[in-house]
Structures are given as structure tokens and as C-alpha cells.
Computed example of a mutant assay.
Amino acid sequence: MDRISKLPVGVIETILCLLPIQEAARTSILSKEWRYHWIKIPKLVFIEDQFQEWTRGPKPSAIELRLNKPSKRKDMAKRCRFFYAIYQVLLMHEGPIHDFTLSMKVDTSCVEIDHIILHLSKKNTLKILKLDFEAGGDEGHRLPISLFSLHHLTSLYLNGCALYQKRSFNEFGCLTTLYLSSVWTHMKTLHRLLSSCPLLKRLTLGHGMTILYDVEGSTIVDLFECLPVIEYLYVTLFGLEVILST
């Protein structure tokens, strides 16, 4: 007797959310009943390093092994396969996406990331967003304006990104958790961001933060005035580490 297939849909979705996305997709071959379960899971996680383990191409040549340096063409091919897989999942996905994670190396040519964020903003069901980037340049990936259209976010985790949004915004009325690490931004931008989060309870400004001060802009002290209901605060700036918890 197939007891798993008789489980409630919510339980099946929870099980599939615990699997790597590649494994979740492979459950579609189990039976007709399972063909479309995986395209409805509300949590999507894409980690480039794990994806490469599942899609290994041809073995490197003897020259590449001797130089210990894979060709740029093969690196580009892996990156294309990774983004293609993400696009396919997003295009096939049905129902809301509540939790989305993207972890990868980035460079100045990752316009595909902007396309993914734009797609998520149009769906506008996201509650948790995690962008974990290993930047090849100094700043990391500059996030697009569509990020600020994710009105229902409750948790936002950014690592290896650049925030240079000059326009005012007040779209993060539901945000309760904000984690920033290795993020480049202006003090005014950070001030506007925190001002748009009236429900923010947990804030982390972690290692690698680069805050550019304007000539006549906000100061670090002004940031704390934007946190009326804060319960947990972790700040590491200029070699100073501060942890406050209530």
C-alpha cells in the first residue's frame, strides 16, 4: 500500500521542501499522482555548489589538471545550466512561493539575478528571501529596484550585495528580520530602508559592511531612531561589535 501518496497535500509539500530541488523534481517520475507535486512547493533553494555536484560535465583535460585551472568556457557552461534550471523551475511553478534562497558566486555580468528577482516581485507572494553571494569584485551584485516591490517580506537576508537605491521607498511594512553582511550601501539608503520597516524586531549589520557617508547625511546614531520595536540588534562596524537583546 502506498501510504506516502495518501498523506495530506500539505504534508507532502513539507517533505518535498526538505529535499534538494533536484531530488524534489525527480519525484515526478514516481507516478501520475506525483508528477506535479514538486511544482507547487512554496520553498525553493538554489545553491550553486550543490547544483554543480549533480550536473558534472566532462572530465577536465590533462592540461587543465596540470594547470589546476578549468577553462572559462566550461565555467560559463555550468553557470548557464544553473540559471537555466532556475528559470525552468520558476516557469513551471504553480501556486505561491513563500521562501526563496539563492547562493552562488557573482560577477558584474549576472543580469540573470535581476530577472529572477523581477519574476519573484511579479508573483509577489514571497515572505522570506535569502541572497548569499560570493562576490568576485569589490561591491558584490548591485540589487535591482524590483527588490523593493516584495511587499510581503517578513525576513530578508543579504550577503555580498550592493544597495544603492536613491529613491524613497516604504514597501517593507511586514519585515521583522533583516540580516545584512558584506553589503555596500550609502548611509542615507540604509536609513531609508530601516525607516520603511516599522515592525522590524531583529537587525544584523554583520562583518564586511561598507557604509558610504554622504557629506550631509545620516549618522550611525540616526539609524537606531528607526527601530522603535527592536528586540535583537547585532552591529559590527569599524571594528566595534555591539549586541543588544531584549
Rank of each mutant, 00 (worst) to 15 (best):
M1K: 10
D2S: 10
I4E: 01
V9N: 13
V9P: 01
V11P: 04
T14M: 10
T14Y: 10
I15S: 14
L19F: 04
Q22M: 07
E23S: 07
A25K: 05
T27I: 13
L30T: 08
S31E: 09
E33L: 12
W34T: 04
R35D: 02
I39F: 01
K40R: 15
P42T: 02
K43Y: 00
L44E: 07
L44D: 10
F46D: 01
E48D: 11
D49M: 06
F51Y: 06
Q52E: 07
R56N: 10
P58E: 12
K59Y: 14
P60Y: 00
A62Q: 11
E64N: 02
N68M: 11
K69P: 04
K69E: 13
R73Y: 15
R79P: 03
C80P: 03
R81C: 03
F82P: 02
I86W: 05
Y87T: 14
V89F: 15
V89S: 03
L90C: 06
M92D: 14
H93R: 10
G95S: 09
D99R: 00
T101V: 13
L102Y: 02
L102I: 13
L102S: 07
L102Q: 06
S103T: 13
D107N: 15
D107C: 15
T108M: 10
S109F: 14
V111I: 11
E112S: 13
I116K: 04
L120R: 05
S121E: 03
K122A: 06
N124V: 04
T125Q: 06
K127H: 02
K130N: 06
A135N: 07
H141Q: 13
R142A: 11
S149C: 06
L153C: 01
L153A: 03
L158H: 04
N159Q: 15
G160M: 14
C161L: 10
C161H: 09
A162T: 05
Q165I: 12
S168R: 09
F169M: 08
E171R: 02
F172H: 00
L175C: 01
T177L: 07
W184M: 06
M187A: 09
K188N: 14
T189F: 05
L193Q: 01
S195D: 02
P198K: 04
L199K: 13
L203R: 06
T204S: 12
L205N: 00
G206P: 06
G208F: 01
M209D: 09
I211H: 01
D214L: 09
V215I: 14
S218F: 03
S218V: 01
T219M: 11
T219F: 12
V221D: 07
L223Y: 01
L223T: 02
E225F: 15
E225T: 15
P228M: 08
P228Q: 03
I230L: 15
I230C: 09
E231G: 07
L233N: 03
L233F: 02
G239R: 12
L240D: 07
E241P: 02
S245W: 02
S245K: 09
S245N: 10
